[in-house]
Design a binder for these strands. Structure first.
Length: 265
DNA sequence: CCTATAGCCTGACGGC
DNA sequence: TGCCGTCAGGCTATAG
């Protein structure tokens, strides 16, 4: 599930539920999730702490602890968060459980364990090490920077949207949506887009992601002309009713409508 | 520089 | 029903 709009929704969920409460216990139920961080390191000194604020960059969440350190949450293909009181509400695949003094719990759940939970000291250094490009919804990420990154690239449009050095990855499903709304074939080479097309692509990145965030990334609530709810075997174009086509790009399936998104170069 | 591939994990689904 | 292959909204390392 978690693409950028989903992770932004998780951020708001954390903001609304889990800040400023003393942590009384941290339970790690799948060590693998911790990557470089040890269980001991995560627990030691973190119990009794509080979450103070949350920032998002691409598909990472950075939770500021009152100690000044950061808890990094990444959700992989299947991660999610759930805040609840009674343990019978503990979600399946709960991998790390934070319990607060007020009796509530925050679960980091992930069926496939492809995400990560880490404790770091320096957020900027973390972003540098991951070579993460600007966040697509960051207001400081403007057209000029976008053009600089994309105009010279010989990558296919879909690959570009999923390349984290150009722009902190947007995600497979929303990349399809953006290209559909911008009328660009997923296999178009970025450097073959003219200035207008690039500008339109940029505006569409912002508007699609923004629209999804406003709807808590719930596919059924997206605008009617969005391709996302139709993005499956046998799905049809929401505007013309014709069958969507599929093509593999960067090892992922791209869904698109050829007559609306031009031709493969 | 760019692309395809395999691998990390687990489960859902369709075909036989 | 059971088994098997394939695929899934992420990301990285590697080879070509």
């Amino acid at each position: 599930m978690p693409e950028l709009p989903d992770v932004e929704t998780f951020k708001r969920y954390l903001d609304a539920t889990s800040l400023h409460q003393r942590i009384v216990q941290i339970e790690v139920r799948a060590r693998r999730i911790l990557e470089e961080t040890t269980v001991r390191n995560l627990k030691e000194g973190r119990e009794r702490r509080t979450f103070e604020s949350v920032q998002r960059h691409g598909r990472y969440l950075f939770v500021r602890l009152d100690s000044g350190r950061w808890l990094v949450l990444h959700f992989g293909m299947t991660g999610s968060l759930k805040y609840f009181r009674d343990m019978d509400k503990d979600p399946p695949y709960d991998r790390v459980l934070f319990s607060f003094e007020n009796g509530y719990h925050l679960a980091y759940a992930s069926q496939r364990k492809l995400g990560e939970v880490e404790l770091i000291g320096d957020k900027e250094r973390f972003l540098e090490e991951k070579a993460l490009g600007p966040d697509a919804l960051d207001p400081d990420f403007e057209l000029a920077a976008f053009e600089e990154a994309f105009a010279e690239s010989r990558a296919m449009a879909k690959s570009g949207l999923m390349n984290q050095q150009l722009v902190a990855r947007i995600g497979n499903v929303y990349a399809d949506e953006i290209l559909f709304q911008a009328g660009i074939h997923p296999q178009t080479r970025l450097n073959e887009l003219d200035k207008d097309a690039l500008a339109k692509l940029f505006r569409t990145i912002k508007s699609v992601l923004q629209a999804a965030v406003e709807r808590q990334a719930v596919p059924a609530q997206l605008p009617e002309d969005y391709i996302i709810p139709h993005r499956h075997e046998g799905g049809v174009c929401p505007t013309c009713g014709e069958a969507l086509e599929q093509v593999q790009v960067s090892g992922r399936t791209a869904y698109f409508r050829p007559n609306r998104q031009g031709h493969e170069p």
